[in-house]
Design a protein around this nucleic acid. Sequence first.
RNA 1: UGGGUCGGCAAGACGGUCGCGUUAGUGGGGUUUACUCCGCUACCGAGGAACGUCCGGGCUCCACAGAGUAGGGCGGUGGGUAAUUCCCACCCGGGGUAACCCGCGAGAACAGUGCAACAGAAAGUAAACCGCCUCCGGUUCGCCGGCGGUAAGGAUGAAACGGUGGUGUAAGAGACCACCAGCAGUCUGGGUGACCAGAUUGGCUAGGUAAACCUCGCCCGGAGCAAGGUCAGACAGAGAACGUUGAGGCUACUCGCUGAGUUCUCGGGUAGACCGCUAGAGAAUUGCGGCAACGUAAUUCCGAGAUAGAUGGCCGUCACGCGCAAGCGGACAGAACCCGGCGUAAUAGCCGGCCCAUUCA
Length: 110
Amino acid sequence: MLDRAHRLALPTDFRRITRRGTKQTSSLVVAYAIPSDRGLSRFGIVTSKAVGNAPTRNRVRRQLRAIAWEARDARSADIVIRALPAAATVTWDVLHADVLKTLDRLNTSA
RNA sequence: UGGGUCGGCAAGACGGUCGCGUUAGUGGGGUUUACUCCGCUACCGAGGAACGUCCGGGCUCCACAGAGUAGGGCGGUGGGUAAUUCCCACCCGGGGUAACCCGCGAGAACAGUGCAACAGAAAGUAAACCGCCUCCGGUUCGCCGGCGGUAAGGAUGAAACGGUGGUGUAAGAGACCACCAGCAGUCUGGGUGACCAGAUUGGCUAGGUAAACCUCGCCCGGAGCAAGGUCAGACAGAGAACGUUGAGGCUACUCGCUGAGUUCUCGGGUAGACCGCUAGAGAAUUGCGGCAACGUAAUUCCGAGAUAGAUGGCCGUCACGCGCAAGCGGACAGAACCCGGCGUAAUAGCCGGCCCAUUCA
């Protein structure tokens, strides 16, 4: 789970990052990032209705937040993770490995 | 024991580890207050449907929400409730051996208009396809044609203008008679009432459909927590039209009320914080009233309130179900102002009442 310092809250931030940030896609998620000078990462999670019904979306969002918490200090950037429908169908281990790998690719390309 | 029917309960438990939100306490930072940020500790932190948003209310603003029309909703009777289209009891009709279940239950479709596929002669002020019968004409003596009468018989249909038996007749018909069914009126008795039971009179018979228009009775003002309010902050205004002889608003329209701005074009800006925000038509137990829904009194209890949106992620153990076993599985689904209903979704179980059948005593 993420504390307030590691969270994105403003709609304007989400718009800014998804439009202008660098983008990496896997079969499960899409990640956007813009470097920042805060010395830590701020995360925002997007789970649309395409992912599933409310309990399913909640579960996916909580899993993604747990993964983001592990990666919270790996880099200095504002990151938005958007879940794709396939993310609701895989196990924790698969999702965990896939998201960390996608974030790493983001890091190297940025 | 088997089958059925009605109702209730519950929505796995425990632990480890890493986290989040509200509140309270505490420490520190932003020079002080206010406010805010970061630590630490403690408590609490999704549902029976939180869902759909289909009804009914509370609450807020519009005039402490007023009149009429339009429009919409409801429809056995009595009761319950803040209120309802909900709930309870009863009545009527239908189904079931029974427990029990079902009915969108107003108008005897006696105000009017309409509708009824297919079949059938005909789907309603009746009507003659076959059949039956009198009379007239013709005849090859088999019958044929015509004017009429006839709803007893045939045939169609979900439904064809009562049923059975008789009198009657050319053949027939409630044309007439008896009994039965049904309808209408009156009276008596019971019930708060829907209605029920009985008696009597009448004319002999009236089809279905109002989840078709319609008629009758009752109910409904509008918009919704993005309601509504407070604070902070930003920018930049210009032009045109209408207006106290009434702009605009309140409602779809008329009245009525209010009383100074409104609309359009071009250009620019904000979409932040706080209140509303959870103790309420509240829950449990017991007593009393009531067949019940429910009411009432006493005692006890109450602890989500988020806002890119907390209430969790990962791992393990034990129960549970399935499988010989390794093992696999645990539904439907997540608060967003709050209640009362309805409807829908779903599954591994547990408990109880009643009915029928069977066995034993």
